[in-house]
Simulated assay, not measured.
Amino acid sequence: YKPDIIIDAIMAKKNINTKIDDAPIVIAVGPGFTAKKDCDYVIETKRGHFLGKVIEEGSAIKNTGVPGNIGGYTIERIIRANGDGVFKSVAKIGDFVKKGDIVAYVDDREVTALIDGIVRGMLHDGIVVTDKMKCGDIDPRAEQSHCFSISDKSRAIGGGALEAVLYGLKNLRKQGKK
């Protein structure tokens, strides 16, 4: 398997094993990567003025562990494992939940919603999780259609990835490699 382009967008917030020589064009999304070392280009994922920016040298903004503010909520939006174990969801993407509702289990331990809103993301059942691991997301705007459309953040990051692909192809042509 010899791809022309690799985009590492696995959301690990660190480089698991991506190398700049994995393909002629290697693009990495988010923190944990350094352009010109791990990959050719890094895409900024932190909300704000530089969201979606193609970084040709250096790194994305470090992971703060605090998600972007939506509807006045940040860390409360995240559904986190309450211990190590096997994840089983109760709520599904698109479900409206209230603060305190059981949204999942880790083994036999209840995981509850910290705010009212729509479940916008949720791990699949059977995944082994670790304590405090992100397992899902609640959107306090409670707009169900947001669950089934592309977010502004995803569009900006996707646009940045496309821009990086075009930069990479242009640079390969300049070098006579494509």
Rank of each mutant, 00 (worst) to 15 (best):
A28V: 00
V29E: 02
V29N: 06
P31N: 07
F33K: 06
T34C: 01
T34N: 01
A35N: 01
A35W: 05
A35Q: 08
A35M: 04
K36I: 00
K37P: 00
K37D: 08
D38W: 07
D38Q: 00
I43C: 01
I43Q: 04
I43F: 00
E44D: 04
E44W: 07
E44S: 06
E44K: 07
T45K: 06
T45Q: 02
K46Q: 15
K46R: 15
K46A: 11
K46H: 11
R47P: 04
R47Q: 15
R47W: 14
G48A: 06
F50T: 14
G52T: 04
G52I: 03
K53N: 09
K53G: 03
I55H: 09
I55S: 05
G58F: 08
G58Y: 08
S59K: 14
A60W: 01
A60Q: 05
A60Y: 00
I61P: 00
N63Y: 13
T64I: 07
T64F: 07
T64S: 15
G65W: 09
G65P: 13
V66Y: 08
V66W: 06
G68L: 01
N69K: 12
N69L: 12
N69T: 13
N69Q: 05
I70L: 15
G71M: 12
G72F: 07
G72E: 13
G72I: 11
T74C: 14
E76F: 03
E76G: 01
R77A: 01
R77E: 00
R77C: 01
I79M: 01
R80E: 06
R80V: 10
A81V: 06
A81E: 11
N82V: 15
N82T: 06
G83H: 12
G83L: 05
G83I: 13
G85F: 03
F87Q: 03
F87C: 02
K88D: 03
K88M: 08
K88C: 09
K88H: 10
S89K: 13
V90H: 07
V90R: 09
A91N: 12
K92Y: 02
K92L: 09
I93Y: 04
I93S: 04
I93C: 04
G94L: 06
G94P: 12
G94S: 11
F96T: 14
F96M: 12
V97G: 13
V97H: 12
V97M: 10
D101H: 14
I102C: 07
I102Y: 08
I102H: 04
V103M: 08
V103Q: 03
V103D: 11
A104L: 04
Y105R: 06
Y105I: 03
D107Q: 11
D108I: 14
R109D: 10
R109I: 15
E110C: 09
E110R: 15
V111K: 08
V111P: 13
T112C: 13
T112N: 10
T112E: 11
A113K: 12
I115F: 07
D116Y: 12
I118D: 01
